[in-house]
Design a protein around this nucleic acid. Structure first.
Lengths: 147, 147
DNA sequence: ATCTCTGCAAATAATTTGCATTACG
DNA sequence: CGTAATGCAAATTATTTGCAGAGAT
């Protein structure tokens, strides 16, 4: 089942509709898979390809997509950013953010599970999700800075 | 050496001045130590205690304080938040954010060091800092939701 | 005395909302 | 057909900036 159908189904489950605009916005998100875009950025991209789509529609759609888990939100940066949610949510990813060039790379790893059990035991805190960012210098920038 | 003197010194090192307003803003941050405040929130608190201080001054001051490491910034939430920087930066802390009541709790732990070594080895990424947030339900809210 | 800092108000940036119209299911 | 969704423009919210005067060192 492809992204579009998953999207249609999730919308229908909530009594919502898959409109032409929502398809187009989804298409743009697909074309930029892996990028971390602000709503404004998404809006600009959409308007390049589909100039008839209003900015407010993009903003409203991202909100809907987020609620349905179609896109995932992160605030790795100054501004909140979105990316197409990983269809196989199973394996989570973390981010490495280069302080020099700003590049955001992803890495995989489930090494927080033990810690989550500790949180439950020690604080009674039930973890449902987490977000981990490493700030530093990527290989290229580290070289330039002679680190 | 107290916070105020540390602040004065850091300012002076940068050729900056410790004005009455900056002292007052610092005082407010001290009174709300441990809280995670937006710049707007800080501005409101300042204006309650010191109505003569302009909003723009608060915004500009927080920016200065951040650059000097007097306050630390986090984007755990929708909006960027600030807190008085831990003078003993040595032991780092992570955050648990309750999805129900919004409360942000802190926890300590240095369990990411191994992972940082792996990042350097596998990706050539030099970590200088990191941020970890756990989202979930705090003890009280978990009880209400019968988790 | 010098040069940073301040308050104000206006400017900008980012997002939300009201409403009449369109179009999905 | 009924109701959710859209586009537009106006409204809101959050933050930044220009500038003339005040104040710290």
């Amino acid at each position: 089942m492809n992204v579009l159908e998953i999207c249609r189904q999730k919308l229908q489950e909530g009594g919502l509709r898959l409109t032409r605009q929502r398809e187009q916005i989804l298409a743009v998100m697909c074309e930029h898979q892996g990028e971390h875009l602000t709503r404004e950025g998404i809006s600009n991209l959409v308007q390049q390809e589909y100039p008839s789509v209003g900015k407010a529609t993009v903003y409203r759609t991202i909100t809907v997509f987020e609620k349905l888990g179609i896109v995932s939100r992160n605030n790795l940066d100054e501004r909140v950013r979105y990316e197409l949610a990983d269809p196989a949510q199973a394996h989570e990813h973390h981010h490495m953010i280069c302080l020099a060039c700003g590049k955001i790379a992803e890495m995989r790893g489930d090494f927080l599970e033990t810690q989550e059990q500790i949180l439950l035991r020690d604080y009674g805190f039930h973890v449902v999700n987490h977000q981990l960012k490493f700030y530093g210098y990527c290989r290229d920038c580290a070289k330039e800075q002679e680190l």
